[in-house]
């Protein structure tokens, strides 16, 4: 564990969406601010800065985490994935993203990156969730546009399509 000084910038090296990155951060800088304003990865959104809304959810070493409750210096040496990593390529969407578009699982799209990150992680570990499983898992996220019904439908549909892809693959 490196000793950090509160009044100076520290170098933070980590893997972001499969690429090594390195940038400077004060110890108090939030990971959400670091991603957005230092590394210009603005897909991760900030909705409450106290860990309730879930918009800033990212993946850190395979686990879903709130970027607003994480300090930038904490991801030193970690593997971080954000919403920018989900699509298989430019101009393409993942199965989960496509399901969201098909079911109108988003309106303003502000909470969506966090929800996609949570579901991406969840569906890897739980390939055949029930509706109540998904609702319970999604209860860590606030969406004010959709009323959640189309999000739940998209998640269930994506789970099924991912299972089919897995069988074919």
């Amino acid at each position: 564990m490196p000793r950090l000084s509160a009044d100076r910038q520290h170098s933070v090296r980590f893997e972001l969406n499969g690429r090594e990155v390195e940038a400077q951060a004060e110890p108090r800088m939030l990971l959400s601010d670091f991603l957005r304003h230092v590394l210009a990865m603005t897909g991760t959104h900030v909705g409450c800065e106290h860990g309730v809304c879930g918009a800033c959810t990212v993946e850190i070493d395979g686990m879903a985490a709130r970027a607003c409750l994480t300090l930038a210096v904490q991801v030193e040496g970690a593997r971080v994935r954000t919403v920018e990593a989900l699509a298989p390529g430019p101009g393409r969407l993942s199965i989960l993203q496509e399901a969201f578009r098909r079911h109108h699982g988003l309106q303003c799209g502000f909470c969506t990156p966090g929800i996609l990150m949570s579901l991406d992680i969840f569906l890897r570990a739980h390939p055949a969730p029930s509706e109540i499983d998904i609702r319970e898992y999604l209860s860590g996220h606030l969406c004010r546009c959709t009323g959640y019904a189309p999000i739940v439908a998209a998640a269930l549909d994506a789970a099924e399509k991912l299972r089919e892809a897995d069988i074919i693959g």
Binding site: T42, G43, V83, A87, Q97, L106, G109, F110, T112
Partner: peptide
């Protein structure tokens, strides 16, 4: 609207 919003490519005021 959705392709951009789903890939983190939306352009909100803080972006």
């Amino acid at each position: 609207e959705d392709a951009a919003l789903l890939t983190g490519a939306g352009r909100f005021v803080d972006d």
